[in-house]
Design a protein around this nucleic acid. Structure first.
Lengths: 231, 231
DNA sequence: ACCTGAACACCGTTCAAGT
DNA sequence: ACCTGAACACCGTTCAAGT
């Protein structure tokens, strides 16, 4: 019965930051952000709650590591296009897909934008901004704008998905929001009222990328002098 | 001693959602988000913790109401410019200033973007997008992009201010971030390393508005056909 | 109708004690 | 060095009881 049970069996029981983060991700994926507790995490790892603190500074550190892991994985499969514009769209797409699969990633990104995962996105975007031909002094602003848009959309999308997960389906949720919007005071909220009709049918991913395109168009337009010729 | 003490004295002691929200804002302003507790809020209102629940659904409701109050006040003083572009910049500026004064507003906006305050911003921006001459079908995407950028920047700025408030000053904080960035692996983070030098000297507000300008430029460029002539 | 405040069901985090 | 798990110092929220 215990044949084949050598010391690796023990090794598998060893704690490590990686194992902790993997377990945390499994819990977050399966039951959402509210379910991640040091107690249930410890139970799943068959250890004491305090043991986790040997490998992880605190809960924020754990969530940051989990988010960084997911974003790192998402970026690993983003092939670099020759066109910087297409590459930036691919980066944004990868982030969108990661959030679509795991709403907690979006929540974490928008809550703590300056941590590892955010820096990873910033770097990727910035490299393409440079490849796009944006002059040095403008690169910081341009990359920050795109990063901010991604994070802002991440927060909105994650928050919407959050509501969806707590009960009704996506279209039912959108319809309930649309119904609430359609009933606002027309003097105070003329725009939102009018837009409500488009809510149910709209495509989140397309809207996400449309925003990116607007900034890219603005960057391109800013270089009227020819400074942004593809090169 | 008790002359002049008529029933209004009693009235002042009455609870109401407004009084609760005002007290919550006072606590948030004075001691930050971590200090807002139903117990300390109740103490400040000289009542029991449970009494608050008669006027407020839960803590999320309280924070949403506080944020909506602040954004409403901020928008009350935003004069409409004749130029939609300038008005959108003024709206973004007002949000920036509100967050600059109260970091918790930024955190709340980015955490819960679809609540009252977010809707207020969305409406204001949307109206200007229409005034800008963006055709109907594109208005939703354009307004969402600007709202998302504002929320994304709100989150980043709030998170930075948060770190500042916990100890060191702003420039010291930026320098510590810059120092961390400057020391990253140059193969993995070439862009962030290079940009680190600009961090200490940069102007948050200018960067905030630069992002808005990029989207506006993108919107204008999108209407090459003349559809976006100022009208 | 509105308020009281004790009680409930949790949290993240710490830390003496073990191996 | 690493793990255990009870204990600490809190939370938001509920609810019987009061007025």
């Amino acid at each position: 019965m215990t044949s084949r049970t050598h010391k690796n069996e023990r090794r598998a029981g060893q704690l490590s930051k990686d194992r902790i983060v993997d377990s945390a991700i499994a819990i977050l994926d399966a039951e959402g952000e509210g379910a991640l507790t040091f107690r249930v995490l410890a139970a799943r790892l068959a250890t004491g709650a305090g043991a986790i603190y040997w490998h992880v500074a605190d809960k924020q550190d754990l969530l940051a590591a989990a988010t960084d892991h997911v974003i790192g994985e998402a970026f690993a499969v983003v092939a670099g296009r020759s066109d910087p514009r297409a590459t930036i769209r691919a980066i944004a797409s990868a982030v969108f897909d990661a959030i679509d699969r795991r709403p907690w990633v979006g929540a974490q990104l928008s809550r703590n934008p300056l941590q590892d995962a955010g820096l990873r996105i910033f770097e990727r975007v910035g490299e393409q901004i440079e490849a796009f031909g944006v002059p040095e002094p403008a690169q910081f602003n341009a990359a920050t704008a795109i990063l901010s848009l991604i994070l802002g959309l991440a927060g909105q999308y994650a928050s919407a998905l959050d509501h969806v997960s707590t009960g009704i389906g996506r279209t039912a949720f959108l319809e309930s929001v649309a119904a609430r919007w359609a009933v606002l005071d027309p003097d105070l909220y003329p725009f939102v009222r009018r837009i409500a009709a488009q809510l149910s049918g709209h495509d989140d991913r397309a809207q996400f990328l449309a925003g990116i395109d607007l900034i890219l168009a603005g960057i391109a337009a800013g270089g009227k002098g020819g400074a942004f010729e593809r090169g």
